Computed example of a mutant assay.
Amino acid sequence: MDNTAPSTRTDFFTRKTQRNDVGELLALLNQIIESGGISALEKPLNKAEFISWFLEAEILESSVCAIDRETGEPLGFQTVSHFGDIPADWVDIGTFVKPGIQTRGIGSALFKATLAALDGKGMVAINATIRADNTGGLAYYRSCGFQDYKVLKNARLSDGTLIDKICKRYDFV
């Protein structure tokens, strides 16, 4: 099955994440993590962890990325997996877009590619858990059609900070 989704933009395209994307996507992810305040991930990953979590995990259903058409540079990626305490017919989503270009339609194109990759797999819903202080992430998932269904109060970050996390769901039916 071709996981490439058409985009309304012509300066990038989406496709299934490949092993040769790992180095650049890892750098992009670690840049997001190190900037703080927007990712549930709090500590940078190494290459082996990235591959294990976002490319080869048994619980992974899809990993797609956006690629700059001119330079070949990965601009972002999105994964869905059976991570966390969710029903078996749900998946959990993570979206990571290069800082400074979040409003170029990359996230929307990634979500279209993810939906295409999940087509026919029998999923009922997608869960997104977003830090309450990540207003951009909350707005992004809302724009994709996700609805709030639960709040995790006072989740403890690695530095001891307590923060609420908002659980949103996208229903296929």
Rank of each mutant, 00 (worst) to 15 (best):
A48T: 03
Y170F: 15
V91H: 13
F12A: 15
I32Q: 06
G23T: 04
C167L: 13
R69H: 02
T79Y: 01
N20H: 03
K47N: 10
D164A: 04
S143M: 08
E24L: 14
A57C: 09
S158E: 00
G120H: 05
E56D: 13
F146S: 08
E24Q: 15
G136M: 10
R131I: 09
G145R: 05
R169T: 11
A88H: 06
L45N: 08
L115C: 09
G160T: 11
R104V: 02
N3I: 04
P6R: 10
D148P: 11
D164L: 01
V124A: 15
V91D: 13
G120S: 10
G72Y: 02
R69K: 10
N3Y: 02
D171G: 03
K165Q: 13
G137M: 03
D133Q: 06
R169H: 06
R69N: 11
I38K: 12
P99V: 10
L138Y: 13
T95V: 13
N30Y: 00
A27T: 04
S52A: 10
W90P: 11
T103C: 07
Y141W: 03
T114R: 03
L55K: 09
T129M: 07
D85F: 12
I93W: 00
L28K: 05
V91L: 10
L25F: 00
N46D: 15
R104P: 10
K47R: 08
K121F: 01
T4L: 02
D68F: 01
A113M: 01
R15E: 08
L75S: 03
V64S: 08
Y141P: 06
T135K: 04
D11Q: 12
R69F: 00
I126S: 14
L162K: 13
Q18R: 07
A128I: 00
Q147S: 14
R9I: 06
A113T: 08
G72L: 04
K16C: 03
I38P: 09
G160Q: 09
A139C: 05
I59N: 14
K98W: 01
D148I: 04
D85Q: 14
S62C: 14
L115T: 01
D2R: 11
S63I: 02
K16F: 03
K98R: 12
D148K: 04
I163L: 14
L26D: 08
I32H: 05
I32M: 08
F83S: 15
T4W: 00
R15P: 07
C65S: 14
L138I: 15
S62Q: 04
A109M: 04
M1P: 03
S63N: 11
S143V: 12
I32G: 13
A5E: 02
I33K: 01
H82F: 12
K168W: 02
S158C: 09
E58Y: 02
V64Y: 00
K43M: 09
K165T: 10
S158F: 12
S158V: 07
E34W: 00
S63D: 02
D68N: 14
T4I: 06
D11P: 08
I106P: 11
R9N: 13
L152Q: 10
E61T: 00
K16P: 07
D2C: 14
S63F: 03
R169S: 07
D85T: 05
R156G: 06
E73W: 01
I126M: 15
V124L: 10
I33A: 06
A117T: 11
